[in-house]
Structures are given as C-alpha cells and as structure tokens.
Amino acid sequence: MKEFLYTKGKRKYIFCADSKGAELLYNFVQQAMEDKVPFDFMIIGDKSDAFLEHWYSQQKMGTFLYLSGQWEFIKRLKKLALEAGFSEYEMQINIVGQISKKLVCCECYGVNEFIDDDLHLTCKHCGIVLEVSSHYSRRLEAYLGYTSIS
C-alpha cells in the first residue's frame, strides 16, 4: 500500500474517518485550510449507506478522497465510493488496527474471515478446524486453510 500522504493540487478533498482514524487526518485538514482548497471533513458515526451514497455521488470530478479508520469501516466506505464512481487512484486509505483476511476451507470451499494473529479457526460453514497458511489465491482473493488429522 502507498504511504498515507497529503497530495497537493486537487480540486477538493474529502476526509472521512471513524473515531479511531480521525486524528491522523487533522494535519491534512490543516494543510487544506492553509492551501485554501475546499474540503469536507466528516467523522462517520452512524451515517447510513444511503446518506454516504448520496454525498459521494454529489462530488465533482477531481475530488480526492481520504479514508482513515478500522478495517470494517474502510471496506464499507471504499465499496460505496467505488460504486459512486471514485477510482482507486482518487482515494487514499489508512487502516487502523488489524486487517481481516479471507480463508478458504480446503474441504467445503467456504470462506471465513480471520485476522493476522489467528493461527487456527473453525470453519463457519462445515465446522472443521482450519490451519491458516500463507498460500494465497488471487482468483479467490483468499488464503488456504488446511485441515489437520490430529
């Protein structure tokens, strides 16, 4: 992932954060104020998807989006932004805390979520215990979970 940096020269900035990610954006907000560039800064509490969809879709070309927060928050806002027409090149992302990843069960192909510290988990689809591995499939966007015989 690219370093989380303020990129000068954009038409407008949108800064979105959850309560954990807000602090990192304060410098960026200050920079935008100094540059006298329009910006919105919003700490997303319980805003609905419909609100965010509407807000994103009102933005004009050249608007740059910053998202800072925990993984679940980032996943939700990034998805909404992409749906509203933002591209990956028009946003920067800062993830606070752990990223949850996907693990494919080698027996039933069911997909499970895990975080970096997990070594084992129980497949929520078939109930077997899976060992987290580093074997990764880009097609499935997931790691392989092995069974054990012990």
Partner: peptide, 17 residues
C-alpha cells in the same frame, strides 16, 4: 493439492508451499 485453490495461479504461486 487442490486444483480448485491453485487454478489461475502463476508458477511461483503454485509452488510457494
């Protein structure tokens, strides 16, 4: 090994384990 999991991988990805 699993064809389902390894499908569409490149040579290095297949052999990484």
């Amino acid at each position: 090994w699993s064809l389902y999991f390894n499908s569409e991988m490149n040579f290095k990805e297949i052999h990484s384990p």
